[in-house]
Nucleic acid binder design. Structure first.
Lengths: 214, 214
DNA sequence: TGAAAAACATACAGCTCTGTACAGTTGCAT
DNA sequence: ATGCAACTGTACAGAGCTGTATGTTTTTCA
């Protein structure tokens, strides 16, 4: 850990500024609140939620501990705020990329896995923060599960709309199938540190979508 | 938490004895070492690794703390031992179930998702311990990742053998695809608390296997 | 039966972590 | 310029957690 040289904010955000920008922590944050959110997000994703202490966060953010507790009532509240900020930024990036795709609904669904591939290839990819949070707080904090539910609902809704557009007979069933492929790619790529699982998932999705086309 | 009444070992294992037996913690353990492993496994899976303290483990196991440290040098060593024991028991159950399946290799691969469904339906299902452990110790303890790799390698090898048997052109590619579906089903079922995702994954796998049959 | 090994109960040392207190400093708007 | 709000730096209280020490009781096995 380099908690000491991270005392300088410029230094702290240097290694987080590269490749693509799915992570809101990439943008040099102006306010102290944003610096805290950004530092916490980086550390939570790298080292886990419980394993990351408040002192490490404020050291990386370059703020005083009192400032953190002025903005966030407790570590749990901070975790929820990080998940919400990270989720919002990720969805903006993800669905923004998908909006640029030309082609029919099935092409758009297949593009999901291309965008995932870019995500997985990032050096700062350590799995989906929501999946990791649910894994860590299994039966502990219910509001963390709720945040994950909201996040996953966005993807499900998008997929179901695409399935309807491609006139699938059971659009919810199609959406669930693609969700399984997305979650599986996320976890497999995280474990193997190999973005290629996105393309494996894509192959399967292509075959599957062929079978449900009206 | 019922750490107090769990002082009685019989009581402690009562709520863990039901349905099916993928979990070695189900069997009333004889030795103190097994009781510790079993209690730790239960608590780690329910509440997470960091969130579970040594005192809670020995309270549930009904042993003295010194006994725990006689058998396991540290909490990290205990975590590794739990993962190994849980992984061994799970694989014995899982592949044992698959060995009873009649039919060709594709029928055997599809049966994977039926067995997963039974796993997901268990009231003590809280996701795959290895996936959860990697999520929690992302960059922390390398030997935990190694244990997860070993576990996943067993499944991959089994799937690849089945793919070879069904004369797929690229058996490794087929195995990776099924791994994605398995991981996805595990995570989706864990998040939604809905075992049905195993059947969604199965539908997709059936279509996919049709497409790769020689 | 009797000695050795294992397990038990309890207390506690040492450390880390969360969250608070407080006095001093900066920045900004009117 | 001045007042206000936000931020800083440091210290510390309180709790919890890991791991150890010690003396007693139970189990094992020859």
């Amino acid at each position: 850990m380099t908690a000491l040289d991270a005392h300088d904010p410029d230094q702290a955000f240097q290694d987080a500024t590269s490749v693509c920008d799915w992570n809101f922590a990439r943008h040099m944050p102006a306010t102290a609140r944003d610096r805290i959110l950004s530092a916490a997000s980086y550390l939570f994703c790298h080292n886990g939620f419980s394993a990351t202490g408040i002192d490490t966060i404020v050291a990386r953010a370059g703020t005083a501990k009192a400032t953190l507790y002025n903005h966030f009532a407790s570590k749990d509240v901070l975790i929820e705020a990080v998940l919400e900020a990270e989720g919002t930024a990720w969805r903006r990036w993800f669905f923004g990329r998908l909006q640029q795709v030309r082609g029919g609904p099935d092409q758009r669904v297949l593009a999901v896995f291309d965008v995932l591939h870019d995500w997985f290839a990032d050096e700062n990819y350590f799995g989906c923060p929501f999946i990791n949070a649910v894994a860590e707080f299994e039966t502990g904090n219910p509001s963390i599960r709720a945040a994950a539910d909201v996040h996953k609902a966005h993807l499900f809704t998008w997929l179901k709309a695409a399935a309807i557009e491609m006139q699938a007979e059971q659009p919810e069933s199609v959406a669930r199938a693609i969700v399984v492929l997305v979650d599986g790619a996320i976890v497999a790529a995280q474990h193997a540190r190999n973005p290629g699982f996105a393309l494996d998932a894509r192959r399967v999705a292509a075959v599957y979508l062929d079978s449900v086309r009206a």
